[in-house]
Design a protein around this nucleic acid. Sequence first.
DNA 1: TATCTGTTATATGAGTTGTATATCAGATAG
DNA 2: CTATCTGATATACAACTCATATAACAGATA
Lengths: 129, 129
Amino acid sequence: MHLTLDLDSEVPIYQQIRDRIVEAIARGQAKEGDPLPSTRQLAADFGINFHTVNKAYDLLRRQGVIRINRKSGAVVRRDAGSGPPEAPFIDDWEERMRVLLAEATVHGMDREDVLRRCAAVLDGFGAQA
Amino acid sequence: MHLTLDLDSEVPIYQQIRDRIVEAIARGQAKEGDPLPSTRQLAADFGINFHTVNKAYDLLRRQGVIRINRKSGAVVRRDAGSGPPEAPFIDDWEERMRVLLAEATVHGMDREDVLRRCAAVLDGFGAQA
DNA sequence: TATCTGTTATATGAGTTGTATATCAGATAG
DNA sequence: CTATCTGATATACAACTCATATAACAGATA
C-alpha cells in the first residue's frame, strides 16, 4: 500500500490519509484483512507526527472502514462493504453528492458529461479489483 | 431566494451559504442576473455576523459564480455556466468526486445504485428550471 | 441628511490542525 | 529477561480557521 500525500495542500493531512486509504480499498488494492502500516511507520515515511496518522486511522475506524487491534494493528474490515449501507451514511453521502453535482451544473457540465465521468471513475475502481 | 442553514452543523456557516446558493442556481431557482440578498440583510435573517456572509459571497465571486458591484450588490453571473468549464475546475472536481465515489464503493453501494442516485439528483435540478 | 450598500481594518474567543514529549500496556524477537 | 515493536492516552504548544464584535470609509439612493 503506497500513499501519495501533499503536505502543502489545504486539505488536512489526516484527511488526505483517510481519503487515500478509502480509495485504495475501493480500487481493491487493499482487501479484507490486509494490514495497514503502523502509525509510527507511516508517520516516519512521510516525515509527519504519528498523532496525525493516528487521527486518520481513528476516523477510518469510526466510519467502519478498518479494525484496530493492539496485537494485529490496523486491518481492512472484513464486512466494510457487505450488506446494504446504513441509512445515515446514505443521507450524508447524498447531501455531499448534491453539492458536488450542483457545482458541476453551475460550471456548465451537462448531465451526460457528469454521469460519464462518474461511470469512468467507478469503472476505474473495478478494473483493478 | 430562501436558504436553509444549520448553525449547529460541523460544516462552516460560510460554506453552507455557498453550497445552498450553488444548489439554488443549479436548480434554476436563481437565474442569471438575479440579485442576492445584501450581506447585512442575510446576516440579520439568520442572526449571524455579516462578515460570515461576506466570506461566502467572496468565495462565490472567486469561483466565478456571482458578480459583486458596489452599486448593484451581488448578482448571479451571466456567464457562470456558459462555455466549457475550465480545466483546473474539472481536475479539482474529479478529485473530490473520486473520494466520494470511493466512499460509496467501500460502504457497499454498487455501480448502478450510485449512478442511479446521481442521475436522480441531476434530474431534480432540471425539473425546476 | 439619513440610510442603504460593499469594503476594509482590527481585535477577540473558541475550536482545529499538526507537532512534541512522555508514559503505559501488551505482544514479540533475541 | 531484555529490548523493541505495537496501539492508547495525556498534556502542552504554535499556527491557523471560524465566527463574532466594532469601527470606519465611500458610493449610491430616497
